[in-house]
């Protein structure tokens, strides 16, 4: 199987800002690629180039073997886009929105209508289908938007931050919808700021920072690189720091990492068992903690490991090197 999306050396500059700085990317056919990065990393710019909305300054992008710059119309026929930048019309009903999209894909009226009905049913919007979409909840709107991307059953789907801004329940619902979708063999490029989202949905993840791909791998590979789950604690008394450090090192059989403040310490954990063991030993030694818990690696951790700076402030390197 070949690559359904192939991007090489993409560059795009806005004034002084390099939104894309030599981005390379491939999505093998029938797989899900998660493009993971913080705000401003260049995810949306990349999506806009791939979906023919934006001309890059340099580089090439192909969708299903078609050059997006040479033949954008053919690319549009094969691609479905949904996300923060492809909206639904709030004055139209859900049904009208989908019918309109169908008509604009070149469907005859009856077929557009039938397809709209099908999609409303499938995305649990049938009851709300004849209400203006501005009355929809955030989650419903995203589902309608996603349905819009699927009207022509395109072989390639691009979802730009499909769950950003959604409440946890809608997010999980959206994940289910997307997972069901890709189980049918649709190729998907998904951008996200959430490691957890990429973890749940993507076969492979490309981490993007400052317009460039800085790592590629499965979620497990990235997490392993990042150090996986950690037990993290905040001491009640800084005087206990050295003793606790030794204790943590023994239980976790690993180096102990300093936290943001002097009271904080962290070490790799293997689930709740490690946490219980640490708690037991702390009790034995009579060390009081203000807070203790298991932390899964976040995008921020991935970034810290890969780039030495956090995800919140792209481009600003931290002064202290993360301890290994």
């Amino acid at each position: 199987m070949g690559d359904i999306i192939r991007v090489r050396g993409l560059e795009k500059r806005y004034g002084e800002v390099r939104a894309l700085d030599g981005l390379d990317l491939t999505v093998p056919e029938g797989t899900v690629l998660g493009l993971l990065g913080p705000n401003g990393a260049g995810k949306t710019t990349a999506v806009r180039v791939i979906t023919t909305l934006l001309r890059p300054d340099a580089g090439t992008a192909e969708v299903a073997g078609i050059d997006v710059l040479a033949d954008p119309m053919e690319v549009r026929r094969r691609i479905g886009l949904s996300g923060q930048y492809a909206a639904v019309d709030e004055h139209l009903t859900g049904r009208e929105n989908l019918e309109m999209v169908g008509r604009l894909y070149g469907f005859p009226r009856a077929r557009a209508r039938a397809r709209a009905g099908e999609l409303l049913e499938r995305f649990d919007l049938a009851d709300a289908g004849d209400r203006p979409s501005k009355t929809y909840s955030g989650g419903m709107r995203r589902r309608l938007d996603l349905a819009g991307a699927l009207v022509a059953a395109p072989p390639v789907l691009v979802l730009d931050e499909p769950t950003t801004g959604l409440d946890p329940r809608s997010r999980i619902q959206m994940w289910e919808v997307i997972r069901e979708l890709v189980s049918g063999g649709t190729s998907l490029l998904l951008t996200t700021q959430y490691l957890e989202e990429a973890d749940r949905l993507a076969d492979e993840i490309v981490v993007i920072d400052a317009g460039r791909a800085i790592a590629r791998g499965t979620a497990d590979q990235l997490k392993r690189q990042t150090g996986g789950e950690r037990v993290q604690l905040v001491l009640a008394d800084v005087a206990d720091r050295d003793r606790t450090r030794v204790l943590l090192g023994e239980v976790c059989r690993s180096d102990v990492r300093d936290g943001e403040t002097e009271r904080e310490l962290a070490a790799p954990a293997e689930g709740a068992a490690t946490l219980m063991e640490v708690l037991r030993r702390l009790e034995e030694e009579g060390i009081a903690v203000l807070d203790i818990g298991l932390r899964r690696p976040t995008l921020d951790d991935v970034f810290l490991t890969l780039t030495g700076h956090g995800a919140e402030a792209p481009g600003t390197a931290r002064t202290e090197e993360p301890a290994r």
Binding site: T52, E74, L81, Q84, A87, D89, Y105
Partner: peptide, 17 residues
Amino acid sequence: QKGIIDRFRSLPMARSA
């Protein structure tokens, strides 16, 4: 502003429509 032009532009419709 609302991204509807982007939706249109991502569709294989006539450019002037």
